[in-house]
Nucleic acid binder design. Structure first.
Lengths: 280, 280
DNA sequence: TCTTCCATGTCGAGG
DNA sequence: CCTCGACGTGGAAGA
């Protein structure tokens, strides 16, 4: 049995169900009317309402309402879950130390309590991160600029580690700062700190270039870069190539993407592709 | 009926169930063996495994494994959900534009499909934020330093808005930067940018003090502050008072907290307080 | 452990 | 819309 569900259980039945799930290291969900209290790095209170609580065997707990991607309350992995019945309510408690934190959920009514047997060995494969961008540049430095030669990654400086440190065609030191998405002034400031640090390190008479690499840049950042004598190179972290730009600062490219509507309609099973808007 | 659950439904039954939930703006969950593909700001692939998918009426979708607080895949609010049956699999798709993104979940087996009627009007009340810290200081400026007088919050400068701008007992301008938790060098840099900006604004001969306020500070940040001639004041955002420190950098305070074990045992209902470790 | 920094960050406020 | 900064950020990698 991969799922074991109680419908409108008594608190005591839900309690037994949950405790066996904790014991067996299984994931479970509880839906019903509850209040939530949290105390730890901050403190919060949530009045009565219907929520979905997810308890994971790694010690994490999520309290979800019907809005937002972020849970209204939670606890990260490493906590210890416990359950009890007190004053006619089902209490789910999750605690940890370092920092000392406690999350309490009190259910006055439990509509559903499910336990799931999870079998999942697959790992997520993701591309398009800053690390990918770095690999693109190291594999083919000329995409940054003809004659650029990377010398070191994560090079330490007074201002922190420099993403890529290298030299241009003329042997001038270059600080490269990478961002996987559109950058604002803060990235320019960060780059300036690195360049300043190398200035101090090398001596004021040695020139040091600073290059910010990202798919795009805000106007404010552009002007700050200009003021600071820094440079910008537009590169897409996924492809390692200059991103498609239409006329102006607008980054919305209207590339027509109509895959998935290819053939395929001769399959065995009947097809049904009805939609319903859920973005009220 | 607040919860409507299908146990091991056919894909077609699950499809109908989901579409009526989308139509009615209700939250739902699907558990079963699936694969996930994402393409948008980045690109990802996830091979077959058992996961819990949560679809919210605001357009968000979460794909949870039995580990981590963060979903293995997701889409933020504002997306449009749709479902279909193709090639013998249940496909749940969530799309949005700006940025153009798509998340596909293909179920080869559905163990459970639930629809929840959510009634939740309560708002979360949280204390201990940076805003709380600001209120503490504005209400009682002497906790920062005797004679400190706040003049302006969010004061604009070349380097951005300054949390609190004021004067010390001698009438010297003071820039106050607030952080709700332990700060590193980046906060010190930020403060320096503000102080520099006011220097340029006031003229180089006018002294400007910079004060970083947080519950604690890293060593690297301390040395940076020293180099830059900036100051640090330790304050807890929750209480507005100097945080408890034991001997050294260690921030773990062993305050004994034994509430909840008070009386209360004379209640009507039987008590049951069994625990089970879930932090495997 | 503690520190540092990236993230498909998410979220809210303000222009 | 875009832009900016806080967050109980979470998570991973390095010291």
């Amino acid at each position: 049995m991969t799922v074991n569900t109680l419908h409108r259980p008594t608190h005591r039945d839900a309690l037994v169900h949950l405790e066996s799930a904790f014991e067996d290291g299984e994931m479970c969900t509880v839906f019903g009317r509850c209040t939530v209290e949290y105390d730890g790095r901050a403190t919060s209170e949530l009045g009565p309402g219907d929520r979905l609580v997810i308890l994971k065997p790694d010690g994490s707990i999520l309290v979800h309402t019907d809005e937002k991607r972020t849970p209204v309350n939670w606890q990260p992995p490493g906590c210890t879950h416990s359950a009890s019945v007190r004053d006619g309510r089902l209490r789910i408690r999750s605690t940890r130390s370092n920092p000392d934190e406690r999350l309490d959920v009190h259910f006055e009514r439990v509509d559903q309590c499910s336990v799931y047997r999870v079998n999942d060995r697959s790992d997520l494969e993701l591309t398009g991160s800053e690390e990918d961008l770095r690999q693109h540049i190291l594999a083919n430095p000329s995409i940054l600029e003809a004659g650029f030669e990377p010398l070191e990654t994560e090079r330490q400086s007074d201002a922190g580690p420099i993403d890529i440190f290298g030299e241009d065609a003329d042997g001038v030191p270059v600080v490269v700062e990478l961002k996987r998405r559109r950058v604002g002034p803060s990235a320019a400031s960060q780059l300036r700190r690195y360049v300043d640090a190398l200035h101090r390190e090398f001596g004021d008479d040695e020139r040091v270039r600073g290059v910010l690499v990202a798919p795009s840049v805000t106007e404010r950042a552009t002007s700050l870069l200009e003021r600071e004598g820094l440079e910008f190179v537009a590169l897409d972290p996924e492809t390692g190539e200059p991103p498609v730009e239409d006329d102006e600062g607008n980054e919305n490219d209207a590339a027509d993407e109509n895959d998935e509507n290819d053939a395929g309609e001769g399959g065995e099973d009947g097809e049904s592709d009805e939609k319903a808007a859920s973005d009220a």
